[in-house]
Simulated scan of single mutants.
Amino acid sequence: MTGWHAPDHLIAGYADGSLPDADAWSLEKHLESCASCAGRVSGAVRATQAGPVLAEVRDTVLAAARPAPLRTPRLLWAAAPAVRGAWLPAVLLVAFGAVVLAHVADFPGARPLLLAVAPVVPVAGVALSYGRHADPLHELAASTPSAGLRLALVRTAVVLAVSLPLLTLTGVVLPSSGAPGAAAWLLPGLALTLAALALGGWLGLRTATAVTGGGWLCAVLAPVLATPDGAVSRHLSDQLSLYVGGAGAQGGWAAAAALCAALLAARRTAYDRLERP
């Protein structure tokens, strides 16, 4: 519920079609959270000449829908692109590959390597779940009052809900080899995801995720490439300890996540224009 209610003249203008588009969209957004105003608007529309026609259309649609199976709830429809396509198999491949490296190939740097890659996984998932490239119904979804940042956050939450526990549990079963704990990547992963969302308002979501995810991988893995043979695992563990080990590093990532969240909130309206049809 909300403390503000639409005045009668606004509802009357909406019912007879004379309300400007911007005011109509604002009212429709308000109706999502105000049952009182929604009932008033419904009554006003039924009282117009179009009321009997709309009632007949409604009865026809309901009659046709009764034999059909239950429709997918709106939240699941909004979240679906986050768990389909190539991203979910890629997450499983990262987890399974790390276990195979550690327990089959006897690679001592399996956990450091997982910790290096894991923060980028949710970032990539966000990029692959939002936009025309990910959702065949994106143009339709982007035209609704629930689009924009709200839709992006729903899909981000699904991506995080899948990747965080799966990759963390994978880290638990891997030998430590001097690397930080299995959960040490969680705050960096959250901060990078929020950073990608915040930058997405300026750069577009795919470009922003490439910048944040690519920057992280370069910072962590580039120094390791110059390491002499035989010391890769140790050097990677040292790099991860520097970036995510200890209270100081984790506190820095927590502060970065809070800053990115505040920036995202300040720039939330940018998503109303992002990838609009």
Rank of each mutant, 00 (worst) to 15 (best):
S143I: 11
G131Q: 05
A257I: 01
R234M: 05
D238K: 02
A152L: 06
A44L: 03
P122F: 09
R150S: 07
K29Q: 06
P136M: 10
A249R: 07
G43D: 01
P73Q: 13
G17R: 02
P122S: 05
L242M: 03
A90M: 05
W25A: 13
T269L: 00
V244L: 00
R273Y: 00
D21V: 11
E28P: 15
A35G: 08
L149F: 00
R46S: 15
R206V: 09
G43H: 03
A231Y: 15
L27Y: 06
L259T: 15
A261M: 03
S237H: 07
V154W: 08
P20G: 15
R74E: 08
V117E: 13
A22Y: 14
R276V: 08
A118Q: 09
G230C: 10
P7M: 04
S143A: 15
P89A: 06
L115A: 09
Q250S: 11
E56V: 06
A102P: 07
L164Y: 09
D59W: 13
H138M: 12
Q239V: 08
A262K: 04
L174K: 02
R267A: 14
A152I: 06
R111T: 12
A65K: 09
R273D: 00
E28T: 10
D238I: 01
P69I: 04
V172F: 00
A47Q: 13
S176T: 14
G215E: 08
S233N: 02
S177Y: 13
G131C: 03
L70V: 14
R273V: 01
G189N: 12
V120C: 11
P145E: 03
W202R: 00
A266N: 05
D23P: 00
L113M: 03
A116S: 09
T2F: 02
A24S: 14
R150L: 02
P52Y: 10
G97K: 07
L169H: 12
I11A: 13
G3H: 11
L274V: 01
W253K: 11
R46A: 15
A265H: 11
S42H: 12
G3Y: 13
Y130W: 13
V220D: 08
W185G: 15
L190F: 04
V104F: 08
L274A: 06
L92N: 05
C260P: 00
T209G: 10
L88Y: 13
A219N: 05
V173H: 06
G171N: 07
G246A: 10
G171D: 13
R58S: 10
A134K: 09
D135H: 09
L88H: 10
L274K: 00
D238T: 09
P73R: 06
D229R: 13
M1I: 01
Q250G: 13
T60W: 15
L187R: 06
A90E: 02
G97T: 05
L70D: 12
L88T: 05
G215K: 14
P108A: 15
A258I: 01
A198P: 14
D23W: 04
R74P: 05
P277N: 11
V83A: 15
P69N: 06
L263C: 10
F107E: 07
T170D: 03
P52I: 04
W87T: 01
A38C: 06
H9R: 12
